[in-house]
């Protein structure tokens, strides 16, 4: 099963490794990727991934694990299982307020 996923990442040390590692450890294989910058503090990562044949974890579970990462701002997923890249569903990371916490602003 091929799926497409688009991830908005904080530009911070290890962010790319953290996302790719999570995807692979959760039983998916990266088939293609590209990344570009959204200015100095963010990057957009587009991935074409396929579930490992030895793994049965759902795509929904994978996206929830990726969304949990603190370097992830937003994630978009395709709703189809085809090669067409149609990113239509997005969700914001629940951690968007963390910078405010760190600077002492109200959460």
């Amino acid at each position: 099963m091929i799926r497409h996923i688009e991830i908005s990442l904080e530009s911070q040390h290890g962010a790319l490794l953290r996302v790719l590692g999570t995807i692979e450890r959760r039983g998916w294989v990266v088939r293609a990727m590209d990344m570009d910058s959204q200015g100095n503090d963010a990057q957009t990562l587009r991935l074409k991934i396929e579930r490992s044949r030895h793994h049965s974890g759902s795509f929904d579970t994978l996206t929830r694990h990726v969304t949990k990462l603190f370097c992830v701002r937003q994630i978009g997923v395709s709703t189809t299982q085809t090669d067409e890249c149609a990113i239509v569903e997005t969700s914001a990371s629940p951690h968007a307020h963390m910078a405010a916490v760190a600077t002492g602003a109200p959460a």
Binding site: H13, G14, R18, R25, C71, M98, V101, A102, T103
Partner: peptide, 23 residues
């Protein structure tokens, strides 16, 4: 430690120490 931490930091600027510890 990437796969076994919730998050991690390398502090590359002394002025960020307090902020990173809090985070």
């Amino acid at each position: 430690t990437l796969p076994i931490v919730k998050h991690s930091f390398i502090i590359d600027d002394p002025d960020k120490i307090g902020e990173i510890v809090a985070e």
